[in-house]
Design a protein around this nucleic acid. Structure first.
Lengths: 156, 156
DNA sequence: CTAAGACCTCAAGTAAACTTTAGGTAAAGC
DNA sequence: GCTTTACCTAAAGTTTACTTGAGGTCTTAG
């Protein structure tokens, strides 16, 4: 047995340890817990303790975030797993396949947008009627930052 | 020619007209003005009036937003134009070339991410040491350990 | 035993891009 | 003249993903 602070694979982790090992700030861990993304129990002294599985869960969260998945969606995806369960390889495969499809989609949209932009740079028109760039056929805005409907009226 | 309310090309536009013709909410127009993206003058009654050029300017803003350019950056790009000037075809070409480069960049990054994800789905490891997806830094030391299947024991 | 460091909660702050609300003025229609 | 519609300002609210701060408790090293 080690003499100095034996890091037992089956010992629970404190929030600080999880933070150091995952690279996620303590405040963010609190936040994730509040949002139901991770779970913990408490010691007698009311301090959080985590199962080591939480590290893998956090890894999934971080990857999903890099993919551009909002936390709420990550949370609901993780909720489909049996309560608080370790994320298995199968789980990961399911999640990542779904997320890759979304990523593919986003890439597709951006590529189409790039093509339109390229055309438009060529013509330089920005015409209300003719410019594909100004008249996106696929109505979904990249960024959901507000309702925007194109007014059919108008020439300029 | 219309008999009712002749829409003169050289008459200024009220904020409501600009809103209807551009598809941008009045509140957003106020907001853009506050941020220096568009400009107006006032009537005796303190109401905003816009030069028709504003519509083209707004078109540029909207396209830039679809490209994912933040408003602050759009503002500073528009500021490089002579004060309040109409956006010419040349201006547009300059701006859009720059923005297309940024878009290319973003697409590139997403594609690389997709590739990593695809790899990772295959191996399913999410390993701290070996997973490219979890180690986005380029300073990844490729030790011989190689990808490994998910350990049900919860190895981090 | 005590002081430092880790941890706790709750509230408020941050940034982006707007919208909503409230209270009031201006212009247009009948 | 009166009412409806358009417009004005300033401030606060919205969402996402957190961080920061204040004030207090727990745990651990010496």
């Amino acid at each position: 047995m080690p003499t100095i602070k034996p890091i037992n694979r089956h010992q629970p982790l404190s929030v600080g340890e999880v933070s150091r090992r995952s690279g996620v700030a303590v405040s963010a861990l609190h936040f994730y817990e509040q949002k139901g993304l991770i779970h913990s129990w408490r010691t007698d002294g009311n301090q959080r303790r985590y199962h080591r599985d939480v590290l893998r869960r956090i890894a999934v969260i971080k990857v999903a975030q890099r993919l551009g998945i909002p936390l709420a969606e990550i949370a609901s995806a993780l909720e489909t797993l049996p309560e608080g369960r370790t994320v298995t390889a199968d789980d990961w495969q399911q999640l990542s396949n779904r997320w890759r499809a979304e990523l593919d989609d986003r890439i597709d949209k951006l590529c189409r947008l790039r093509d339109q932009l390229t055309d438009c740079i060529g013509c330089g028109c920005l015409s209300v009627d003719a410019c594909r760039l100004r008249n996106p056929s696929d109505a979904l805005a990249e960024d959901g930052s507000g309702p925007r409907l194109l007014d059919p009226d108008g020439r300029d």
